[in-house]
Amino acid sequence: MKKSTVDKTVLVTGGSGFIAVHCMIQLLNAGYRIRATLRSLKREDEVRAMLKEGGVDAGQNLSFVTADLGADAGWAEAVAGCEYVLHIASPTPLNDYKHEDELIIPAREGVLRVLRAARDANVKRVVLTSAFGAIGIGHKHRTTPFTETDWSILDDSTPAYQKSKTLAERAAWDFIAKEGNGLELAAVNPVGVLGPVLGPDFSHSIQLTKRMLNGEIAACPKISSCYIDVRDVASLHLLAMTHPAANGERFLAVSGASLTLLDIANVLRRRLGAWAQRVPAREIPNWLLRIVALRNPTLKMLIPMLGQYMDASGEKAKRLLGWSPRSNEEAIVDTAESLLRFGLVKTHANGN
């Protein structure tokens, strides 16, 4: 594969992010050159260190450019000469935003900036990192697994992050239909992302795992979610980037049926032994969680998920692209072991 990819450059936006770094590891191992965007080049050494933690010394095959989703500057230079673009950068969930537009506008306008620049630079295909939040929010009385034909139903109660991902992805498909001029697009919609941490940036789902291991969650909220390992999210990005059947398609990145937080806790306790002694073994009643969440912004974000049907199907990617994700249990255990390796879990000896 390396012979056919050695002269091809891929732009990866948001190069310091958890999914982006894992995508870059697989791109580099496949022989691609990478140009990665950062809001500040001061993070270059940090990104290279995360890549080394993942087993790759990028050397001259990786370069960095400054570009921000909120401004036009830098994007033309970023995409110049690139065969593909993985648009992974997106505003992250905020607890303290004053208005939902603080997330929605950068996400929507940012994807349009990237698509315009890619079109004008004759990029072959853009892969957009969307989210399950653009598929599975707002559906009442759901009883069958979500698929790529579903779109989130937005109203005033929709959380701002999920709303931003939905509107950004819709804007991307509208752009391709009306102004794409032959630019190809595929979207990857991950569910809750687990997998090995390589540095300080990792997903919200891993934050919950870390908090369970550290004894910061006394009882599990009664919420469920589907999960996927970040390495399988990355492999799906590469398939969506090059596979002929991926053009114009969305792909849910999901492995297996949904799990409750207690299911995850049970895996941790079963597989990690003494390291999981602080992991909760019971669930918190919904009424009590609602009271506690009044003063806890992190818990408040979980309230809309209580009692929601969350199963989703990854069969499309398996059927069309030959994608084969690892099991949820493997993802959970590898997540926990990486948190231990980085010293992000409290030790038993000193309680710190």
Score class of each variant (00 low, 15 high):
Val188His: 04
Lys52Tyr: 05
Leu302Gly: 08
Val193Arg: 00
Leu11Asn: 11
Cys220Gly: 00
Gly74Trp: 03
Gly136Asp: 03
Gly15Thr: 11
Ser4Phe: 10
Glu337Ser: 07
Ala253Thr: 10
Gly54Tyr: 01
His87Asn: 13
Leu208Met: 15
Gly17Thr: 03
Ala134Ile: 05
Pro145Lys: 04
Gly192Arg: 03
Arg271Ala: 09
Ile105His: 10
Glu216Trp: 12
Ala240Cys: 07
Leu306Ser: 11
Val191Lys: 02
Phe132Asp: 08
Leu185Lys: 00
Ile137Ser: 04
Gly182Trp: 09
Ala36Pro: 05
Glu184Gly: 04
Leu94Pro: 02
Ser255Lys: 02
Met305Trp: 11
Leu11Pro: 13
Arg108Val: 15
Pro221Ile: 03
Pro190Glu: 05
Leu208Asn: 12
Arg142Gln: 13
Val197Asn: 07
Gly54Asn: 08
Ile25Met: 11
Cys23Gln: 12
Arg341Ile: 04
Lys124Met: 03
Ala76Asn: 14
Met212Leu: 14
Thr144Glu: 13
Cys226Trp: 02
Ser90Glu: 02
Pro285Asn: 06
Ala30Ile: 05
Val79Ser: 06
Gly59Ala: 09
Gly343Arg: 00
Leu62Trp: 09
Leu294Ile: 10
Val233His: 06
Ser313Thr: 11
Ala107Lys: 10
Ala80Phe: 01
Ile135Thr: 15
Cys226Pro: 03
Val21Ala: 04
Arg295Tyr: 09
Ala253Asp: 07
Ala218Ile: 10
Leu62Tyr: 11
Leu289Ser: 01
Ala219Pro: 00
Leu294Ala: 07
Trp287Val: 07
Gly138His: 13
Lys3Gly: 13
Asn266Val: 12
Lys210Ala: 12
Arg278Gly: 11
Tyr309Leu: 11
Thr298Cys: 01
Ala49Trp: 00
Leu154Cys: 09
Asn296Trp: 06
Val345Glu: 06
Phe175Ser: 02
Asp45Ser: 15
His87Phe: 11
His87Gly: 09
